[in-house]
Design a binder for these strands. Structure first.
Length: 539
DNA sequence: GTTGAGCGTT
């Protein structure tokens, strides 16, 4: 038997790999020793150049016609990464190799929950459906030989490993869990899912899948219904997902924006000590990552101001009889996002109740008012006195507001005394835009420039409830239960600002007028405060 | 002979 000397990198100590009878070397043999490698190359002594080894159908062919591998020491070829702009700074081949090593190297995977009857053969047989299996073992009791119900498997390719890690497995009639050992089951630490913003309604999941497949295998596409102008695309390879983040792509003539779909908690971790004004109101329930079921955050420091009540994952029947109040003082914390309060099961975790109290008094610093002044329509002055510009919102990039014709300076200067006729907390006349206002609203909605509270048609009809179409509950999943509970008593209140920075408007709910579950009570009080509620998780 | 969260005689 002929042996081929192979090292991982030129100069490394070689390992002798057995060639086949026909003189070829199986790539699987190569990968058994050098996981992730896809070929061989060697240094030609005459030309001093590196030569590649011919590869075909899983076999590597010796360079000499007489099936002789010669005295060369071959070294491994690893798959090149997608040549993307983010890789431009990685010209150093060693760095590249090292990076690929860490990224693409296969590891043993633990398979938990195996049936007692599952054997190493049947385990191997099952996983061979994903790719070459280099090892499959069942851990057994040494005395009895009985399976302990778990085992290990190793694949020849990182691709197969990734595929296995991202799937569920029914093996011999039992659902088994496959994980990287001691990894707490994350599968991969890097998120595979990206947020695709600025989608239009005619971009369907097939479009997204087809488009994004050119960057890597797409394992899932999710488009929230009803239409919310964004979607999620999940890739098999988290690195593909990451490489796309921050980019704009054109799908069906529409420029969409790809960004991180990481949990909001992760994204906000970096923000400290700023005059934040988090006034979102968007709560995306579906496909959300809820580390805990319930959150109650209140305090005077940090950016978890006010109360954020999460009550995700429906079925809690918390929609009735809730009482939410946010009382802050001298701080930045008002407004309330209440995740939950969801009637019914299914995906009922997207409710967003913002109880008004939309006083945004800005005292220097940055102001980014994503206030939900929906109920403040026809208000000559809605109390937004922000003047600071846009705040840092974490990893989500801001939209080009100027392109949208939106004045980001708030509404105080230009809108006082005007009948804005729009439900946005920013100075925008949607009717004047040279585009579909619904699209603009959707875009704004995406960026949390407006909440997803939607006016009840019975009230404030002058307010241009163009978003109300979004509010229609989709049968089955009531995730878009955007109940507006913040109607002021006496709408069209000419002044919502209170005095001395106090938000003293009567923000008590009139839920019974608004089709909301009865019994809720909402109130917000603040003094000299900035609003700081957070958007919910994306993932 | 049973069992059902875990982490492997290298």
């Amino acid at each position: 038997m002929d042996f081929v000397q192979v090292s991982e990198e030129e100069g490394d100590e070689p390992i002798e790999l057995p060639a086949e009878e026909d003189g070829t070397l199986l790539i699987s043999t190569l990968q058994a020793q050098f996981p992730g490698s896809c070929g061989l190359k060697y240094r030609n002594m005459d030309s001093k150049a590196v030569r590649g080894v011919r590869s075909n159908e899983g076999r590597l062919f010796p360079p000499n016609v007489d099936s002789d591998w010669g005295d060369y020491v071959y070294f491994c070829v690893f798959p090149k990464e997608n040549k993307r702009k983010s890789d431009d700074n990685l010209e150093n081949s060693t760095a590249k190799t090292k990076r690929i090593e860490t990224r693409l190297r296969c590891t043993d995977l633990i398979v938990l929950g195996l049936a007692w009857k599952t054997t190493e053969d049947s385990l191997r047989e099952y996983f061979e459906g994903y790719g070459e299996v280099l090892m499959a073992q069942i851990k057994k009791d040494v005395k009895s030989g009985q399976s302990k119900g778990f085992g290990f498997v190793r694949f020849g390719s990182y691709e197969a490993q990734m595929r296995v890690l991202s799937n569920r497995h029914l093996i011999d009639g039992r659902w088994c869990e496959v994980k990287v050992p001691n990894s707490k089951g994350m599968g991969h630490q890097v998120p595979c899912k990206v947020f695709v913003g600025r989608c239009t309604e005619d971009i369907n999941s097939d479009d997204l899948r087809e488009y994004f497949s050119k960057f890597g295998e797409v394992t899932d596409v999710f488009i929230p219904r009803p239409f919310r102008a964004f979607s999620f695309v999940t890739f098999l390879d988290p690195d593909v997902a990451q490489s796309l983040c921050g980019e704009d792509h054109i799908i069906k003539g529409v420029s969409v924006h790809v960004s991180n779909a990481a949990p909001k908690a992760e994204q906000n971790r970096t923000h400290q000590g700023q005059n934040y004004n988090y006034n979102s109101g968007n709560n995306f329930g579906m496909h959300s990552y809820h580390p805990q079921g319930n959150h109650m955050n209140s305090g005077r420091s940090g950016h978890h101001r006010g109360n954020n009540q999460h009550n995700a994952h429906g079925g809690d029947s918390t929609a009735i009889g809730n009482s939410h109040s946010n009382i802050g003082s001298g701080g930045y914390g008002m407004g309330s996002n209440n995740f939950g309060g969801n009637l019914g099961g299914g995906y009922t975790n997207g409710s967003n109740h913002n109880s008004g109290g939309n006083m945004n008094r800005q005292e220097g610093g940055m102001s980014y008012n994503r206030q939900n002044n929906f109920h403040g329509m026809n208000q000559p002055h809605n109390g937004n006195v922000g003047n600071g510009g846009w705040m840092n919102r974490g990893h989500l990039d801001m939209p080009n507001l100027q392109a949208l014709g939106i004045n980001s300076q708030g509404s105080s200067s230009s809108n006082q005394g005007q009948n804005m006729n729009n439900p946005l907390g920013v100075g925008l006349n949607l009717n004047s835009l040279p585009m579909n206002p619904a699209l603009v609203a959707a875009a704004l909605n995406q960026w949390s420039l407006l909440g997803n509270q939607l006016q009840n048609q019975n009230q404030d009809q002058q307010g241009g409830n163009f978003l109300s179409w979004m509010a229609q509950n989709n049968g089955g999943h009531s995730n878009a239960s955007n109940m507006n509970s913040g109607n002021r008593k006496g709408s069209n209140n000419p002044n919502n600002s209170g005095s001395g920075g106090m938000n003293k408007g009567d923000n008590s709910a009139a839920n019974d007028q608004n089709g909301c579950p009865s019994g809720n009570s909402w109130s917000n009080q603040s003094s000299g405060s900035q609003n700081s509620t957070e958007k919910s998780n994306f993932l």
